[in-house]
Design a protein around this nucleic acid. Structure first.
Lengths: 222, 222
DNA sequence: TTTCTTCCAATTGTCGACAACTTCGTGAAA
DNA sequence: TTTCACGAAGTTGTCGACAATTGGAAGAAA
């Protein structure tokens, strides 16, 4: 995740802080967001805060109803399913194009990233997907597609929603070694410049992640 | 007070008017958007206008640079290409799912819509894609996917960008009869509940549209 | 002339106050 | 009791003024 350079206006600051609070569940789903209260908490006027809310609305993290306030989005099962379905298609697309567009150097770095992940898993005992490392892997491939629209959609927009999906799922349910192995397979397909295979592997990978999350939630809820 | 007619706040009004001006080219690509000037033209304060700009930024119709103003997005060839590539994948996905999810009734209405289009073409002599009717066709299928994320992305977000792409292309370059015929094929695939075929046809249809626009622009530019 | 520095006007960023609207509790009428 | 109207409190929508920053013009140095 690129760091928000120090020179940010208050609206962007509020946007980042709110996004974080929403993703981590500090602000409950469906919770009403009071402008005056938040503005005071952040030490700013309501103007910048309102701009931040407009921005978050674009990121689909909140839902605004005119004259009736803003609420944190509610991620029900259907919504999560929809998110993963779209993500599967878009990341699959990114993978297919990345197999053509990425440089050898980039693919090498991707492989090295997985080495670090493997070491991390061994040391920390299985904390992988939960660490943002997994998202980093996916994001690098998205960048490799060279498609600005795709990069924006997956990197900025869906990124937060996805983190939110995960955060609200049991912490350790996400399969680590299987995921790492699948990542390795994807990198190999990329290295062989086999876009179709890379796309297929990525789609399966995401389907697997969805199944994993879906089952975990099914056990938790009711 | 039986009718809760349009009770839009000023920010939404400004957002719509600006979006229209941008899509139609009334505001040139890359043009600087002066907040004070626009606020006065719309008869509102700068607060709501700034919120509107934040919203348009989310729609990718403008690009904002902190402390340096907001500019209309520039649709160069690469950007347009990226848009159509993403659209091809997403609409293909919508089509595949819609083949399962749409009701017989909805598919019937889709067919009737094409009948009306055909009549319109005959009467007006080939103005089809340019009329928003084409987008209506596509949007109905997107709705048929029942995927809220997809509906949002294609219906709200990409929709404006797409209209902008078209508007900045020669008015009559868009193939009418071929497009209509392809639409008919897609509806037939949907009626047969053949998602894979429907997806393939839709992707080809969009590829065709892209080629058509791309060539038209190549001839115009330089 | 070219380039660098300085300063000023224009523009963006922010705030506090006020207006408009929603919501919800209270109480009167049926 | 139920229903509806009314009003008060709280929240969102809007504006105008002021502070901070930027971009470029004017002028000095080479």
């Amino acid at each position: 995740m690129p760091h928000p350079l120090k020179q940010a206006n208050l609206a962007d600051v509020a946007s980042h802080r709110l996004a974080h609070s929403i993703v981590t569940g500090e602000l409950a789903q469906g919770q009403k967001l009071n402008e005056a209260e938040l503005a005071e908490r952040f030490g700013m006027g309501r103007g910048p805060l309102r701009e931040a809310l407009r921005h978050l609305e674009g990121l689909r993290l909140v839902k605004r109803i005119p004259n009736a306030g803003t609420r944190v989005v509610v991620l029900d099962r259907k919504t999560r399913s929809d998110i993963y379905a779209v993500r599967e298609v878009l990341e699959g697309m990114a993978c297919r194009i990345a197999a053509i567009q990425m440089t050898d150097e980039e693919i090498n770095q991707l492989s090295q990233l997985l080495d670090r992940h493997e070491k991390q898993i061994a040391e920390l005992g299985g904390i992988y997907s939960q660490s943002e490392g997994d998202l980093d892997f996916h994001y690098r491939i998205v960048l490799g597609s060279r498609n600005e629209m795709l990069i924006d959609m997956l990197g900025v927009e869906q990124y937060q929603l996805l983190r939110m999906c995960r955060y609200h799922t049991s912490r350790d349910a996400l399969r680590t070694y299987p995921a790492l192995k699948q990542h390795r397979q994807i990198v190999e397909a990329l290295a062989q410049r086999d876009g179709e295979l890379a796309e297929m592997l990525m789609r399966r990978h995401i389907q697997g992640a969805w199944r994993s999350i879906s089952e975990a939630v099914n056990q938790e809820e009711t």
